[in-house]
C-alpha cells in the first residue's frame, strides 16, 4: 500500500502536535507534576480530609440524582421527539441543545432565581416544604440542566433507526406494549443509554459555573469538589488545590475510559442491527 500520496502531512501533524502539546498536555502535565511533588503522605492527608470527602460525597450523589432524572426524562423526551408528531416538535428538538449553548453562569443565575424561595418554582415548592436553592437538591437541578442533552442525543438516533419489523413481530406474537417495550425496545436502547448516562454523569461531576450560584456553597454540606479546589487557590494553598484538582482529573480519565468502552459497544450494537 502506497502511503502518504497526499501532501501536507508534516505541516498538518506539526501544527496538531504543537497545539496539543502547548494547550492540552503541558498544563495537565504541570498539574500532575505539582500534585506528584507533594509526596504520598501530604497528598493523602489533603485528599482524605473530611471537608474534601464531604465534597466528593455531595458531588457524586448529586451527579447520580441528576443522571437518574436525565435517564427518565431524557429517554421520554427522545421517545416523544422520534415517535410522535405534534405541533412544535422541531422547535422542542432544537431547544434540547440549549443547555449546551447557554453559558453556565447564565444558567446558574437563571435557575437560582427560579428556584429561590421567592422564585416562580421555589415559592410553589416551599409550600410543599421543599427547599431547592442552597441545598444539595439545587446542585442536582443545576447538574440535570447542564447535562440533559447527552442522553437525548445518544438515544435519539438509535430510536430513529429501530427496525419496526422487530416490534411488529412481537405484536403478532401477542406481546403487550409494556412487555414489548421492556423486552424488545429497551434492550436495543441499552448500549446508547449507558453511553449517554456515563457522559451525563461525567459532565455533572465536573460542572462548576451553573452550580456555584444555586448551591449555597457551605463546607461539609453543599460544597462541590470543583469549588473546593477553587477555594484552596483563593487561599493561596496551591498544594491542596493541585491535589484536589488531581482527584477530579483522575475521575475524569476514569469516566473517559468508561465512556469510550460503552460508546464503542453502543456503536458495535447499532452497526450490527
Amino acid at each position: 500500500m502506497a502511503r502518504r500520496i497526499l501532501p501536507g502531512f508534516p505541516l498538518a501533524l506539526g501544527i496538531t502536535l504543537v497545539y496539543v502539546s502547548i494547550i492540552v498536555v503541558l498544563p495537565l502535565g504541570a498539574l500532575v507534576f505539582k500534585a506528584a511533588s507533594l509526596g504520598f503522605e501530604d497528598y493523602w492527608r489533603i485528599v482524605s480530609s473530611p471537608r474534601a470527602v464531604a465534597s466528593y460525597r455531595v458531588t457524586a450523589l448529586s451527579a447520580l440524582g441528576a443522571t437518574v432524572f436525565n435517564l427518565v426524562f431524557g429517554m421520554a423526551l427522545a421517545w416523544v421527539l422520534v415517535r410522535y408528531r405534534f405541533p412544535g416538535r422541531r422547535f422542542i428538538d432544537a431547544l434540547v441543545d440549549l443547555p449546551f449553548a447557554l453559558p453556565t453562569a447564565v444558567a446558574g443565575i437563571a435557575l437560582t432565581t427560579l428556584f429561590a424561595e421567592n422564585g416562580w418554582f421555589g415559592s410553589v415548592l416551599a409550600h410543599a416544604g421543599i427547599k431547592v436553592a442552597y441545598t444539595p437538591l439545587g446542585i442536582m437541578v443545576a447538574m440535570a440542566f447542564t447535562s440533559l442533552p447527552f442522553i437525548v442525543r445518544t438515544v435519539q438516533p438509535v430510536l430513529e433507526d429501530l427496525d419496526p419489523a422487530l416490534e411488529e413481530a412481537a405484536q403478532t406474537l401477542g406481546g403487550s406494549d409494556r412487555s414489548i417495550f421492556l423486552r424488545v425496545i429497551l434492550p436495543l436502547l441499552t448500549p446508547a443509554l449507558l453511553a449517554g448516562l456515563s457522559l451525563s454523569f461525567a459532565r455533572s461531576l465536573g460542572e462548576f459555573g451553573a452550580i456555584i450560584f444555586i448551591a449555597g456553597n457551605q463546607p461539609m454540606s453543599t460544597e462541590i469538589t470543583a469549588l473546593l479546589a477553587f477555594i484552596r487557590l483563593e487561599e493561596y494553598d496551591y498544594q491542596a488545590a493541585a491535589a484536589i484538582a488531581s482527584v477530579l482529573l483522575i475521575t475524569a480519565f476514569l469516566m473517559l475510559a468508561v465512556t469510550n468502552i460503552l460508546q464503542a459497544r453502543a456503536l458495535r450494537y447499532t452497526a450490527r442491527g
Binding site: 498544563p27 495537565l28 498539574l31 461525567a202 461531576l205 465536573g206 460542572e207 462548576f208 459555573g209 470543583a226 469549588l227 479546589a229 477553587f230 487557590l233 488545590a241 493541585a242 484538582a245 477530579l248 482529573l249 475524569a252 480519565f253 469516566m255 473517559l256 465512556t259
Partner: peptide, 9 residues
C-alpha cells in the same frame, strides 16, 4: 471531559 476548574488550575 475535564472540569473547566481543573483546566484553570
Amino acid at each position: 471531559s475535564i472540569s473547566p476548574i481543573v483546566a484553570g488550575v
